[in-house]
Design a protein around this nucleic acid. Structure first.
Lengths: 378, 378
DNA sequence: GTTGACTCTGAATCGTACC
DNA sequence: TGGTACGATTCAGAGTCAA
């Protein structure tokens, strides 16, 4: 490879025709990333092994066994070995990342402190640590510690002086009751129909992440058409959400079983309509909303059409928690006011969704959502 | 100081009359901790400086001067210096901590990852990371990041194999609407009357922590009478809360202004009444009762037939205090496990006896027996 | 169809006293 | 120091099945 070619790669911005786009590369993530062009992805989401150090088996109070994460890929000989592994993949990731790209890494207290320190050492600039608060975490069965009810995500830019990274501030704010999106996010763990199962009904991957979590990550820090790399692809949540949200993905995974499951999963994903994907450009967002949590918890889906009580007006729910009336986009209140040509509007009582042949106010969904929030909060 | 004296210090367990109890030691925290006896404090709460900008106070690993200050090198220097400082105080803290003591360290994403990794490297064993969610965090003014709405606390035991640390599980659970206390806590930041102000109305300390936060920390992981060390005492929140909750404190602080403010503050604190300080008695701490003693006192008679709650299993009480299921004989626990084909069983809650037409757990009889024991003991 | 009882499960670093 | 026995310990959500 010549120097000229290297430069060309580093300047390559148009990756829309690359063969590796929207595919899963099989193999070790460091080796795979080293084969990708430098500065070729807009964002990275990484869910590396947590290096749990478990001894013996844990029983629930009813004597049933806890299905622990004891997979070979989570075993490391020492902190030093884990650090070396972490340094290697982060270094390779940093080369692939565009200068204005950002990286997300998720972990627990077992590994996240080592990961964060190494990220700082390698020159990544930490933007936030974001807490995923689980509505339904596993209890602490022996009553020896606090219930481990969250995981930590680190969000960082490639360089300290990178100012041009993507952060969809207005979109996040509009989706959060028109106040700034906080660094603590509440989501359920991945269960039910979303959880991939094999033909025997066993979970395909022990640590599948919820799509709602990835959706907020991608909606906050990427634009439609961006390329998102996931070096620990697993069951492919990053790819599924990226495809749905109109982003490109690149997955890297070692185990064929995970690759097969992810490919099948992603093939079934239908990208959202363009209308639902547009990001807010308006700088003004004054009325109050609390809408994104309904999307987060699946109470309402992007693309859903809303109506006023008499079906005189209509709007479409977008993935970032805003509404679009076709000519105007904003919070549920703003759009409600706009379609009525009114000064103000309480979107919660104005907008209705179709259910069982009739219309129900979305306020009903907020009531349902609040129960969950109150249980997990305070 | 002679070797003899050193040994004496290391073995000193009774610190109830130490001159340094409930005082603030002035000076550098490493030097001050090195003067304290080894294994002399039950818990440590530390709120170290967050910023990685080098203050004159941080120990540089080597005193050589850097003339070419390009950003990367400067950053590396900063991290290295902060790491050295962190390692030094954590090492000194670990020496002072009792073998079954625990340590809390609070920080933000600027420093907490380095702190956590170094804690692991030094042999501390992480028990939880606990998130302080702020009800009223400072907004992100530039709209370039998520609102930084939390801080992270690391809770760790001194050693990996230390199992005897204090965790008041039942107290925490009761305080949390009778479900396990989670790892994410919601508290307001310190404002209003609680916030120390000087005569000009200015904040005495820039990062004064709320007393509610410290109260939960101390209530969860210390017992009344325990000694709590705070090597970065600041405005003395740890001391004030410790005094109020009937714990001893040791503060270390360099700046006289903070010491003065803290002393004044703590002097005004009134300790809670003894009754208000008592912890919920955990079953673990209650005196043991042998099943055979129920026979001795006539609470249950040989030949009594026992059942599980759903009458799926049965066994007979034998004169020696063992049970017989017909095919197997042994302790209430062993037979309970055997009939269920389980590895283990708590016979006290598993087995029931017939009373007034219904089934009552034999644990009820144990409770009666314990009352008798207490009466005899008192 | 609805309701309630029961079962199952999720990234888990999950004893202690006594002989 | 090791072996053995006691006996303490779970929340939310989804799925199943019977009433």
């Amino acid at each position: 490879m010549t120097a000229l070619r290297l430069v060309a790669e580093q300047n390559s911005v148009d990756v829309s025709h690359s063969a590796w786009l929207d595919t899963i590369l099989k193999g070790d993530c460091v080796a795979a990333m080293e084969k990708l062009p430098a500065h070729s992805v807009d964002a990275i989401f990484a869910d590396p092994p947590y290096n749990l150090q478990l001894e013996g088996t844990l029983h629930r109070p009813d004597q049933s066994k806890v299905d622990a994460v004891d997979d070979e890929w989570d075993q490391f000989e020492s902190f030093a070995a884990y650090d070396a592994f972490t340094r290697a993949w982060l270094l390779a990731a940093r080369r692939v990342l565009k200068p204005n790209g950002t990286i997300w890494v998720i972990g627990s207290y077992h590994n996240i402190f080592r990961v964060g320190a190494i990220m700082q050492d390698l020159g990544f600039w930490l933007l936030n640590d974001v807490i995923w608060r689980k509505t339904n975490p596993m209890p602490n069965f022996r009553g020896r510690r606090f219930q481990n009810a969250h995981e930590t995500m680190i969000w960082a830019s490639r360089d300290r002086d990178a100012k041009g990274y993507t952060f969809n501030y207005e979109s996040m704010k509009a989706a959060n009751d028109d106040v700034q999106m906080r660094s603590d996010w509440l989501f359920p763990i991945c269960t039910g129909a979303e959880r991939l199962k094999d033909e025997k009904g066993a979970k395909v991957h022990p640590t599948q992440k919820p799509e709602a979590l990835l959706a907020r990550v991608l909606l906050s820090s990427t634009k439609p058409g961006d390329v998102v790399l996931d070096p620990f692809f697993g069951s492919g949540t990053t790819g599924a959400v990226a495809k749905r949200l109109g982003r490109h993905f690149v997955g890297i995974e070692r185990e064929q079983a995970y690759i097969d499951a992810a490919q099948e999963r992603i093939a079934e994903v239908k990208p959202l309509e363009h209308l639902a994907l547009e990001l807010l450009v308006s700088k003004r967002a004054e009325p109050r909303v609390a809408f994104a949590s309904l999307l987060d918890t699946g109470l309402i889906k992007p693309g859903t059409r809303l109506f006023d009580a008499k079906r005189r007006h209509t709007a479409v729910v977008r993935a970032d928690g805003t509404l679009s009336s076709g000519t105007f986009a904003g919070s549920i209140h703003k759009v409600g006011a706009q379609v009525q040509d009114a000064e103000a509007c309480n979107g919660w009582t104005f907008w209705h969704y179709e259910r069982a042949g009739g219309l129900t106010p979305i306020d009903e969904l907020r009531r349902v959502a609040r129960v969950g929030i109150e249980r997990a909060g305070a």
